[in-house]
Amino acid sequence: MDDVLRQGVEIRLTVNGRKHREVVEPRLLLADFLRQRLGLTGTHLGCEQGVCGSCTVVVDGETMRSCLLFAAQMDGSGVETIEGLADDPDRLHPVQQAFWDHHGLQCGFCTPGMVLTAKALLEENPEPSGAEIREALAGNICRCTGYVFIVDSVKAAAETMASNAPRGESP
């Protein structure tokens, strides 16, 4: 039985724009696949129960918990992680830049999930109110900041993204 249980599943997927072909054990969580197989350690495991949001990644355009998905399910999918946003501190995504400018992080552990969730919010709602930002981030626990500067950061990112957006198009 052990052999059957550990029988690998072949998956082809795109992660941060790069194509991968891998054979994975069925029980390997997407988060562990990203971290251990691809070395993308910016995705963090904070609870493995889907509550804390630290492991948030974007799968086929939607934020999801990578602790509640198996890598085996990802065949044909496109995954975006925090590492896909910027490769140089001088070229940060506006959300990352705003978190930096407004002290939106302390220990940094929740930050990748927080940034990806905030980015998804702003792509859908370019001018969120403070309450809408808090609601959108409700599934991401930060133990350090008390969220005040995170909310400030997201507001600032919204302004940057609005001013960066070409006229006549939605950002």
């Binding site: 052990d2 599943v9 069925p26 198996f70 065949d75």
Partner: peptide, 11 residues
Amino acid sequence: MKPAAFAYCAP
């Protein structure tokens, strides 16, 4: 907190 092994089918 890692799942026990299982066989995976995606019909």
